[in-house]
Design a protein around this nucleic acid. Structure first.
Length: 359
RNA sequence: UGGGGUAUCGUCCAGUGGUUAGGACCCGGGAUUUUGAUUCCCGUUACCUAGGUUCGAAUCCUAGUACCCCAG
């Protein structure tokens, strides 16, 4: 189990740097790979992105330190096509997309994995906090041991074929202090580098501006309504809002109010009490069953409706058209179309999909 | 323009002689976070105006101003 050629996805951060060192030390023949996902002119000094020139330099340095080759692959076209464009289209349709899921599915474990196999590598390794196991039933995708950092939520799109060629060396470790200690023991410059956060391709977190620059269209102002239809104020573009949002509404009421409806057709945003956000069932599409098999019967399991949410007990029912209906034991807050929902049985990811609507 | 009522942070309210003028919401900053949100912490901002009574007034009195209600 300690031989083979591994392409290690290197972001320039702590996790992937430690990941590479661990694999090298374990005897794997490694090459570091960094994907260039944004175009060069998008690099803005001082604004952190996941693929800035600085990060590529960090990745190169980490590879140098580890004594392995470093290669940079330009996937900016694929990234634009498979991640950014759908992201923009989703917002314009009034949805709240999760670009990280798309990036994992289409880029890291899509294009990059395909290329790796083509080039004769056996595996692609990343610094994700998740685990892959194998038994007679096939490959299993499990949560990372570090429950605070578990990233299996973003990986539900992995299939049996892909899991066979994926390695997550950090899946059994704790980020703090284990991974950072290892980084420190190797003297990695990234040991204390801050975790990445925010959408990597949206500078400053202003996705409205990003979308406007991308499309050349200015999102029109519109009314902010209460649940009775009364006008409470004006919004600066309906796609700036997402279900359950409280901050940035500019509306002062006796109680905090939350976005409970975004209508990009009527161009209105509706605000209401938190209890109006509760719902017990949803239907998700683009569903992937990690096992490769659609269950014949409804499955008693637990699901997340958003990242970093405790698993919520539910029953998952496969629908004839490939979609899956989740019925939760308890009402869930702000189930948001466009977001991912992931089904778990204990630590194992059974599958996941994109929330289409709430019932 | 008859009678009654109310005027306090951006908003809604609390505070009836001595308070660092309090809270909620909004807003700003930070924490958390490989999506968007949520959540948590910290913070800025106010007594309608002019007189008067008091050792002392957001608090009492008078006038002015503004708004509201009932009358008409």
């Amino acid at each position: 189990m300690t031989s083979g050629r591994v392409l290690v996805a290197m972001s320039g951060g702590v996790d992937s740097s430690v990941c590479a060192r661990l694999l090298v030390d374990a005897g794997y023949e490694c090459t570091g790979a960094t994907m260039r996902l944004a175009t060069n002119e998008d690099d803005r000094p001082g604004e952190r992105t996941c693929c800035s020139t600085d990060d590529i330099a960090d990745a190169r340095q980490a590879c140098w330190d580890a004594g392995i080759r470093h290669r940079v692959f330009d996937y900016s076209r694929e990234f634009a096509r498979d991640v950014i464009d759908p992201f923009v289209a989703a917002y314009e349709a009034g949805l709240t997309p999760n670009p990280c899921v798309a990036c994992n599915r289409h880029l890291k474990f899509g294009a990059l994995l395909d290329l790796a196999l083509e080039l004769g590598y056996d595996h692609v390794a990343t610094g994700h906090y998740a685990r892959v196991t194998h038994d007679v039933a096939g490959w299993h995708l499990l949560k990372g041991v570090d429950t605070r950092k578990d990233q299996s939520y973003f990986l539900f799109g992995l299939t049996q074929e892909r899991l066979a060629h994926v390695m997550f060396p950090l899946g059994g470790m704790l980020k703090d202090p284990e991974v950072r200690d290892i980084a420190a023991s190797y003297g990695l410059t990234s040991a204390n580098k801050k975790d990445s956060e925010g959408i990597c391709f949206v500078p400053g977190g202003d996705h409205l501006r990003f979308i406007e620059e991308r499309t050349g269209r200015i999102a029109p102002e519109g009314d902010i309504l209460d649940t009775e239809g009364n006008v409470l104020g004006r919004h600066q573009g309906a796609l700036r809002y997402t279900l359950g949002q409280r901050k940035g509404l500019g509306v002062a009421c006796a109680k905090p109010v939350y976005v409970c409806k975004v209508d990009t057709v009527a161009n209105t945003v509706t605000l209401g009490d938190e209890d109006r956000l509760m719902a017990s069932a949803l239907v998700a599409g683009e569903w992937n069953w990690v096992s490769g098999h659609v269950p014949a019967e409804p499955v008693r399991a637990a699901a997340k409706v958003r990242y970093r949410q405790p698993d919520q007990p539910c029953v998952a029912t496969p629908l004839p058209d490939g979609r899956v209906r989740l019925e939760f034991d308890a009402p869930q807050r702000a189930i948001t179309p466009g977001q991912a929902t992931v089904l778990y049985l204990g630590d194992e990811v059974l599958g996941g999909g994109t929330i289409e609507h709430v019932e």
